[in-house]
Amino acid sequence: MKRLGLYGLLLLTSHFVMADENSFTGEVYVNPEQYQGDPPISGKMAADTCSACHGTQGRIFNEIFPPLAGLPKATFIKMMMDFKTGKRPSFIMNNIARTYTQQEIERMADYFSRQSAKPWFVKSEKKA
C-alpha cells in the first residue's frame, strides 16, 4: 500500500466517476463490471485493441511492449489482474487493465495463448 502511494489509493477506489471543471482534463472511470450484462466482447475483439502496441496478434518482440502471443493463459490472466488491482504497478498498464472485465481478460488470455509465439514476420521492405 505504502509503495503504491497516491496512485495506489486511486486504483483501490475503483468505482469513482469524477467530473472536472474542464472536460478535456477530467477523469472518467466506469467500472467495466457494469457492462457485464451486455453481449460479450470476443477475445479477438478485445485482444485486437492491444495490437497497436504489442503487435498484430500480440506478436511484436523485443520492444518496450512485450509479446503476448503464446503466453500461457494463466500467466496472462495473472499479469492483467495484477495490473488491474494495482498489485503490479506500471506507468501504462494499470489503467489499461482496468478497462476490461475479468471475463474479457480471460477471453483475451484464451486468444493470445492460441497465437503463434513466433515474431510477426520481419518486414521485407524498408520504407519508401
Binding site: 497516491l6 496512485y7 477523469e27 466506469v30 457492462y35 451486455d38 501504462i92
Partner: peptide, 25 residues
C-alpha cells in the same frame, strides 16, 4: 487511456484517464 463501449448503436465513454495524474507526485 480512453475506452468507448457500445450500447444500442451508441457510444458510451467508459474510461478516460491521463497520466501523469495531477494528483500523483
Amino acid at each position: 487511456t480512453e475506452t468507448y463501449r457500445e450500447r444500442e448503436g451508441k457510444l458510451q465513454l467508459a474510461q478516460s484517464i491521463q497520466r501523469p495524474l495531477s494528483s500523483e507526485p
